[in-house]
Computed example of a mutant assay.
Amino acid sequence: MNISEIARTSGLTPRMIRHYEAQGLIPAPPRRASGYRSYSEADLARLNFIRRARALGFPLPEIASLLTLWQNPARASAEVKALALARAATLKQQAEELEAMRASLERLAAECQGNQSPACPILEQLAS
């Protein structure tokens, strides 16, 4: 498969595929005589793995760890579980922070007249 074919099949952009290659998440594919990259089914499986891990919020360094564990048949599932639970805890904290920001914005908006008056508690809060 060339890069456009694997991009279409994996649901990733060619740019992201090249980025993952540059980051070492996928090995550099062999090149055809024309100079085009030639991707294998194994590369597609890795890209699908990466796409799914990204969808769950894993950053690239953690994805690299997950890929290493995935490739290791002697892995301990406890390591994978620990990574997943750590990511879940981080996402929970981020969700709580986003909820607090949402509540603050709604409170400020409720205090704002929202009319032609120049007085605006939102701007006053941002300026203080």
Rank of each mutant, 00 (worst) to 15 (best):
A74F: 06
L98R: 14
A55L: 09
S40P: 04
A100N: 01
R15F: 07
Q23W: 09
L85E: 15
S38C: 11
A28T: 15
P59E: 13
A28Q: 04
A84S: 07
A42V: 15
T90G: 13
I63V: 12
Q71H: 14
P73Q: 11
L83P: 03
M101P: 09
R52H: 14
R52Q: 14
A22K: 15
G57N: 05
L47T: 00
W70Q: 15
S77A: 08
Q93E: 11
V80T: 06
L85N: 09
I26S: 01
S34T: 07
A64F: 03
G35I: 04
E62Y: 03
R87Y: 07
L25N: 01
R52A: 14
A22E: 09
G11Y: 03
A88H: 11
T68K: 12
H19Y: 08
E106P: 00
P14W: 02
L67S: 03
R87M: 10
L66P: 05
R46S: 14
S34D: 10
A89D: 15
R107C: 12
A53M: 05
E106F: 12
G35Y: 02
N72S: 08
R52L: 15
G57T: 03
S104H: 11
Y20N: 04
F58R: 06
Y36F: 03
D43V: 12
E41Y: 09
A103H: 11
L44D: 04
A42W: 09
A45N: 14
L12Y: 05
A100Q: 10
G24V: 02
F58D: 02
R31M: 08
N48Y: 07
R102D: 08
R102C: 05
E62S: 14
P73R: 14
A22W: 00
S38Q: 13
I50M: 10
Y36K: 15
Y39E: 00
G57Q: 04
Q23V: 12
L47I: 04
I50D: 00
A45D: 13
A28Y: 04
S104P: 00
E97P: 01
L69M: 09
L60K: 05
I63W: 03
K81Q: 15
A76R: 07
L108T: 00
P61L: 10
L25Q: 06
I50Q: 00
A33I: 12
A88S: 13
A86G: 06
R46W: 06
L25M: 11
A76K: 12
S34Q: 04
V80D: 03
R102Y: 02
A84Y: 04
L56V: 05
R31A: 01
H19Q: 10
L12I: 08
E99S: 08
E41V: 09
Y39L: 10
T68A: 13
G24A: 00
L83K: 06
A86T: 11
K92C: 07
S104W: 09
F49E: 01
L108G: 00
P30I: 02
Q23D: 04
P30H: 05
Q94D: 14
G11E: 07
L60T: 15
A103E: 07
E96K: 15
Y39R: 03
D43Y: 00
G57K: 06
L91T: 12
S77T: 13
Q71G: 09
G11H: 11
L25S: 03
G35C: 03
G35F: 08
T68Q: 10
L67M: 04
A88N: 14
Q93N: 13
F58H: 06
L69T: 05
A74I: 08
S65D: 12
A42G: 07
R75Y: 05
I17K: 01
A76T: 14
L60G: 10
